[in-house]
Design a protein around this nucleic acid. Structure first.
Lengths: 389, 389
DNA sequence: TTTTGTTTGTCTAGTGGATAAACAAAGTTT
DNA sequence: AAACTTTGTTTATCCACTAGACAAACAAAA
């Protein structure tokens, strides 16, 4: 049985309803007439679909708008308060939870930090976080419409966390656990994938279709937006670019490979070379400490960041040649060091990337910084909810 | 004006008609009843669509099939002779043209070899080739349905050849030139992209959805099949992986970068190290010459191929980490040396690729060898033709 | 103020394609 | 021969979209 997707009028209606909702979401406030004009749908069709959406409470009518030489239009607006989504960024030593409306606006946010917790202990923190956010949600027609969780590891298509090395987790079916407990749709996604989506929806990637988002933290992860959609490989493991070889016969990595990119351009690389350089110890040798040093004008610290920027450029160059993206976004904690990374990074790219790849290419730093992932998974939940309407 | 895709019953019919044709193409011979069962469409709907397709001469009825306990079914078959496609692989020193039916079977094929021709001279060869293939096509309802050309260079989405370094071409709008002359749909595609599609449709990639095809010739090009579709970047330049850095500070490449993969793992790398090793000159130092030497048991030649295999593995490792594909196909001329490449290549991958990436991963050599590209572009033309029905 | 023309949104009739169910034809099985 | 099965067509019905008529609400010109 192949059961290929067949087409009938029910599909047509659902599809057109989605289209109308999408137009209202992106162009609000907008009149029925403008929707008909924009989509090419007949005026009557739009009226009928709009009345459905009004019944669903997903949109509402506001007062009349400006006349353009005739009867004044009734303006339609997306009801972003029809429900709320929970997005959680599950980090190695923190838990960042946000409650967003259907437009991705943060209604409430909470950060918990910890150290060296076991899986069971983190699970308790997670439950506490979700409970808190659920209880705090304002009343709404649809209530909590879903929970999204971003994790620093590989996630299978079925939502199982296969390997999260920095957490020490392996084969944890968090999706089922959460769905059983809360009876809500749950989405588990790689942190870099989530961040990529977050930046695309709400951050610096809004106007681009082909985006490579590079999450530079302890390690390096990459999220790919290809043709406006998140791309995952055949099993959902794509974007493990932190383990791309940039130096044959280079340093051994615990992944089994050698010369891996994240050994040269991540937070762990930064801290390690700081130690090797015997940098003065009046500041702690952490990313934050080194940023403070650099801000004070410490040349050694600045050089370290320059070095990281250069190595970032090497990997980014490879990525550009592979994907020919419109935009490269550097995100996560390392984005705080933008000031000292930009020049060496851009130099490397200007010198070494094929000229036609540089056309229409933007290299940007994250706008949402540490919030990209949480907002991204929340947005996934919203998207999933809206297509079921 | 956004003019988003709207849905109506015309679209539904077209889509369902395509679906029915697709099922007949892949499952022929098949009865109307089976189609209804497979697709989920109503029997009556299938009957009506089938009668349309019969009128279009795209399918035909054969004699009755086996009964399964009731009336014997009328079997339907795809009429692969309803039209013919022309596919041309435009190489640096050759022109390979094929005439295929709508199923991709080669009806006629012709190879022309040359050396150091200017663009104008190659254009003449190209015209001669197309004229020959068109005249030789058997009579059919739709005649020649399109021309596809694979070129070793970057092609913009509008079909312009932007840069073909090994040909010395720049900004040549071959698509318009051909369409004006022949008044037929013309598709220009990068040779590696075409090869990837060819292998997916007719070669070793038939049963895979995420394929990385690596065309190893004078240089290295890569074609990506992601989610069953050819992926091109934002401008159509993706897959320029020959210029991926695999050694920081390595050999200078004329692309401006250094340590590019194709300097270590292509035909040009092979020949160069053969020269440097001062290999005996009783055979010419070409790929073919070195293969002959290796077949005779020449240890030096075999070592050279082993070296190439190892470096191929380095780049392939990066690619696997990036795309998490189901299959990697090594194609083009270097595939003839499969015998001496396989072991070092697989060793490198087995040692250095993350374990979960190796699951369900196949590394294969091309089946179509030098025909992948020509068949691929012909298949593009067929596909484009069928969706206009 | 009146008239004219425009814009908005609803309503009605009609079109086209899908579906379900009845039906005829051509088999097999008992 | 009778009963059942399978195939493929036909018929009546449903449903979403479209075109075009229409009324309401407004602006601008007379």
């Amino acid at each position: 049985m192949m059961k290929n997707k067949t087409w009938n009028q029910h599909v047509v209606k659902k599809e057109n309803k989605s289209l109308v909702l999408e137009v209202i979401r992106t162009h609000s406030p907008i009149s029925r007439a403008s929707i008909a004009n924009d989509t090419g749908l007949n005026k009557g069709t739009v009226s009928s679909l709009v009345s459905d959406l009004l019944e669903d409470q997903l949109i509402y009518e506001s007062g009349p708008g400006e006349s353009s030489g005739g009867r004044r239009p009734v303006m339609l607006l997306f009801n972003q308060l029809a429900g709320y989504a929970i997005g959680i960024d599950l980090g190695v030593n923190y838990l960042l939870g946000v409650l967003t409306d259907l437009e991705g606006n943060i209604v409430l946010e909470k950060l918990v930090q910890f150290n060296h917790l076991s899986y069971e202990e983190i699970e308790i923190e997670l439950f506490t976080m979700v409970d808190y956010l659920m209880e705090s949600a304002p009343p709404s027609p649809y209530g909590i419409i879903g929970i999204g969780i971003g994790v620093p590891g590989t996630v299978s298509k079925s939502g199982e966390i296969l390997l999260a090395p920095n957490l020490g987790w392996k084969n944890i079916d968090l999706k089922s656990i959460m769905e059983d407990k809360y009876d809500l749709p749950v989405i588990i996604e790689n942190e870099a994938n989530a961040g990529a989506y977050g930046e695309k929806k709400f951050g610096v990637g809004k106007d681009f279709n082909q985006i490579v988002y590079i999450s530079v933290g302890i390690g390096i992860g990459v999220g790919l937006i290809l043709n406006d959609e998140l791309y995952k490989g055949s099993n959902g493991f794509s974007g493990e670019l932190g383990h791309m070889t940039i130096e044959v016969g280079g340093t051994k990595c615990r992944c089994g490979n050698e010369g891996c990119w994240e050994l040269y351009a991540s937070e762990q690389a930064l801290v390690k070379s700081a130690e090797n350089n015997g940098l003065s110890a009046n500041k702690e040798l952490t990313l934050e400490g080194l940023i403070t040093l650099a801000e004070e004008g410490n040349v050694q610290a600045i050089n370290l960041f320059n070095q990281i920027g250069d190595y970032l450029g090497v990997g980014i160059n490879n990525i550009i040649n592979t994907f020919n993206p419109q935009q490269v976004i550097i995100g996560n904690r390392m984005a705080f060091a933008q000031e000292w990374l930009t020049d060496p990074l851009n130099n490397r790219i200007r010198r070494q990337t094929l000229w036609f790849q540089q056309q229409d290419l933007e290299v940007n730093f994250s706008e949402l910084l540490t919030h990209s992932s949480a907002l991204g998974v929340a947005a996934f939940s919203v998207e999933n909810f809206l297509i079921t309407i």
